[in-house]
Simulated assay, not measured.
Amino acid sequence: MLDSPKRLFIRGLNSFLNYKRVTFFFFFLHFSLFRIFKPSKKVVLFNKLHPIYSDFFLNFKTSKVTWFYFDPNWRNSLLGKFALKNCHILHLDHSAFKEEYLKFGKKTVIECEGLAKNSLFEDPRVSALLFESKYSGRVQLNKPKSFLVYPAVKNYSTFKPSEKNKLFTIISVGYGSYLKGFDVSFEVFKRLKKEGFKVKLIIAGTLGHNFEDYPEADRIAYQKSCDIIDEMLEYSKTNNDLIIKPFRKHDMIAKLYPQADVLLHPCRMETFGFTILEALSFGIPVVSVKLKAIPEMVKHGVNGYLINSFNWDGVSPIDEDAMNTPEWFDITVNESVKFIKQVDGLKRFELDPQFTYSNRMKNLESIYFS
């Protein structure tokens, strides 16, 4: 049976008015009006979607620059090309970088989570390569066009929660129970309870395990982790001092961080550690491992404690196999328990200025306008 003209019209309208098209329409409208009515401001198109970056780009106001998020899928459309031709600066994510962006002749800044392609340093069309940590740029920060520009977070250290939890509250945050070390967090929680501490653990994330996801992991260590995760799930069904659930960004800021006494982040793998930065912005001490960029945020004995589970020198390439063993697990649990007992002795601290919005903006403006 053929569809009626009315049904075909409605189906076509729904197809046209899909989320992506509506989003692009409002982007183009906003972009065009901005270029007409505020021609003196520099327009920067960015395509880095991680909330830490997008929160900064979309919420930090400056008299010289405004940012627009540009979906990489728009670049080949006529309106997308119009935006690329009429912006002033491209601020691109290295992982989503395409050579075709360079043909528009705009000042191009590329932000890197890890090492950058060597060809980008030699390409005169690339103005700057930004590294998010000393570790990520450890062998390239001495090259021309390289800059260390840390991610930034809003400073919440003066935020006052409406109600403080009576129990000493440990939080662990992230997605990927094995990578984020939620099994370690639960073992630490059990150890503290066994020693008589009144403690609560909140796992802000999701649990699960799949051997195929972590082929590099020691099978014995990974099976132990899986067993602990299963035990966690069973325990949480009958005890209210263990909460396991994902939190939305708003709820993390309004509810999760304000009630926390410490962030326990015993990760087996990390790119930067944005969760750590968020916790520190609330003045929450952090107990974590000495890994990649984490020592650049956590200063041992000042705003938290670092566990050096496999004697990393802070410079050499990470041997992640060493973090997937029973020995790593035992050391990390023991050290976490020891350091959590010491966090009350830390003095009050403020967010390190190098991770503030104003410092990131100062660094970016010096690069944009150089």
Rank of each mutant, 00 (worst) to 15 (best):
V199C: 02
S15F: 06
K64S: 11
I220M: 03
L92Q: 10
I170M: 02
L167P: 01
L79H: 11
F56C: 01
Q342S: 13
L207T: 15
G273N: 02
I10K: 08
A128M: 07
A221H: 06
V188R: 00
D218Y: 02
N303Y: 06
K198S: 13
S32K: 06
N239C: 05
G205F: 03
K180W: 05
A128H: 03
K85M: 12
K255A: 04
L45Y: 06
F168R: 03
K249Y: 11
A83P: 00
K245M: 07
G205M: 04
I243F: 05
Y156E: 02
N240Q: 13
F82S: 07
L33P: 02
F272T: 00
R248K: 14
E132P: 10
Q223M: 06
R35M: 06
N165I: 03
L90Q: 12
L207A: 05
N359W: 06
K290W: 01
K255E: 08
E113D: 14
S281V: 03
A204Q: 01
S40R: 07
Y150L: 07
W328E: 08
M232D: 04
Y357W: 11
V22L: 14
F131R: 04
V315S: 13
L2C: 12
V22I: 09
E278K: 08
L102V: 10
L13Q: 14
M323L: 10
L92E: 07
A152E: 01
L49G: 09
A322Q: 13
T108H: 13
A152K: 02
Q259M: 14
K6C: 09
I171K: 00
G176T: 09
I276D: 01
N14Y: 09
E296R: 07
C87Y: 05
L92T: 09
N363V: 04
V22A: 15
Y135R: 14
P5T: 15
V287D: 00
I171A: 00
E100D: 15
S15V: 12
A254G: 08
V149W: 01
D344S: 09
S63T: 03
K193P: 01
R35G: 03
N303M: 04
